[in-house]
C-alpha cells in the first residue's frame, strides 16, 4: 500500500511515521502511537470521545487526516499529567466525581482544558457550551460541570 512520510508533534515528541494517506489522526494516535486514551466512539464527529488538542484547541481527531496536521502541536490525554501528578482538570474531575465509566472523560477533560487555558473563569453557560460537543451517558453532565466550575471559581446554578 502507498505510504507517505508524516511527522507529527504529539505530547511534545516528534514522531516520524510512514502511513497510508487515508489514515485519520485518531487512527495514527491509537494504532501507530499506541496512545489509546483517545477513544473512538462514533467516527462521524458527533460524540467527542476522540477529542485532542490541536495547537491548544479542542478538535475531533476522527475528522482530521493525519497528513494534514503536520507542523501543528497535538496533545492527547496522556500528555496532561506531570509524571504522577495529575493536571488540575484531571484532579478536579476525580475529586468532584466527574468520571464514571470514563469513556467520555479524556475528551471531556481536553475540551475543559482548552476552554480554561483561553478563559480561566468561565461562567456555567460558557462551560456547558464548551463541552456541548462531548456526549456523556453517565453523569447527567452535572458533576462534570461542577468539576470545571470548581476551577473557574464561578458559581454553579442549582
Amino acid at each position: 500500500m502507498n505510504k507517505i512520510p508524516v511527522s507529527l508533534n504529539v505530547n511534545g515528541r516528534e514522531e516520524n511515521l510512514e502511513i497510508p494517506p487515508h489514515k485519520t489522526l485518531l487512527e495514527v494516535i491509537r494504532d501507530d502511537l499506541n496512545l489509546t486514551g483517545t477513544k473512538c466512539g462514533c467516527e462521524d464527529g458527533t460524540c467527542g470521545t476522540c477529542t485532542v488538542l490541536l495547537d491548544g484547541a479542542a478538535v475531533r481527531s476522527c475528522l482530521l487526516l493525519a497528513a494534514e496536521v503536520q507542523g501543528h502541536e497535538i496533545v492527547t490525554i496522556e500528555g496532561l499529567a506531570d509524571g504522577e501528578r495529575l493536571h488540575p482538570v484531571q484532579q478536579a474531575i476525580v475529586n468532584h466525581g466527574g468520571v464514571q465509566c470514563g469513556f467520555c472523560t479524556p475528551g471531556m477533560i481536553l475540551s475543559a482544558k482548552a476552554l480554561l487555558d483561553k478563559q480561566p473563569s468561565p461562567t456555567e453557560s460558557v462551560v456547558r457550551q464548551a463541552i456541548s460537543g462531548n456526549l456523556c451517558r453517565c453523569t447527567g453532565y452535572t458533576k462534570i460541570v461542577e468539576s470545571i466550575m470548581a476551577l473557574s471559581g464561578q458559581p454553579v446554578s442549582s
Binding site: 464527529g45 467527542g48 477529542t51 479542542a58 475531533r60 475540551s111 457550551q129 456541548s132
Partner: peptide, 9 residues
C-alpha cells in the same frame, strides 16, 4: 453551526 470543536475547523 454544530458544536465548538466543529466550528474550530
Amino acid at each position: 453551526v454544530g458544536v465548538p470543536p466543529i466550528r474550530h475547523v
